[in-house]
């Protein structure tokens, strides 16, 4: 096992295989975007929540799965991942905050607002996750030959 990891660390970054963190995260992002469009298309009326809630639940599950797969990586450029994640998170929390503000300003309240906030939290996590993962997957892990 440790031999496999050492061998993996010696491969050029472009040829190393990784678990499908980026595709899962992009699918999760697509689901919250669809849910967001459904919610936005009903503003200022009360939207039906079943489909957006289901989309949000699946999206959250995909993000959690991506996070779990990511956390199990051993030969990975974690310092670079966290550096990119921190700054991207700051940028997308601001972005999500402005979108959330538009919904609050337009009198979205109660359960629909809670659902929008959960969607925005997933959005604000997904984008930094996919950016940081892409940056780190092409970077050399600490103490590797590259």
């Amino acid at each position: 096992m440790s031999g496999d990891l050492a061998a993996a660390a010696q491969l050029p970054q472009v040829r190393r295989t990784f678990p499908p963190v980026a595709p899962l995260t992009v699918c999760s992002l697509a689901l919250v975007v669809i849910g967001g469009i459904l919610m936005a298309s009903y503003v200022p009326r009360q939207p039906p929540l079943t489909i957006p809630a289901a989309l949000t639940a699946v999206s959250a599950a995909l993000t959690l799965t991506a996070g779990l797969l990511l956390s199990r990586l051993e030969q990975f450029a974690w310092p670079r991942f966290f550096l990119a994640f921190r700054w991207a998170l700051l940028a997308y929390v601001i972005s999500a905050g402005v979108i959330g503000f538009a919904f609050v300003r337009d009198h979205t309240r109660g359960t629909p607002l809670a659902l929008v906030i959960v969607m925005l939290v997933i959005f604000a996590l997904d984008v930094p996750l996919v950016i940081a993962f892409t940056v780190a997957r092409y970077s050399s892990p600490p103490h590797s030959a590259y």
Binding site: V26, L29, A88, V127, V130, I131, F133, T134, V135, Y138
Partner: peptide, 10 residues
């Protein structure tokens, strides 16, 4: 957000 920006930053 899912493809272009991560590629750009990387």
């Amino acid at each position: 957000l899912g493809v272009l920006e991560p590629a750009n930053i990387t």
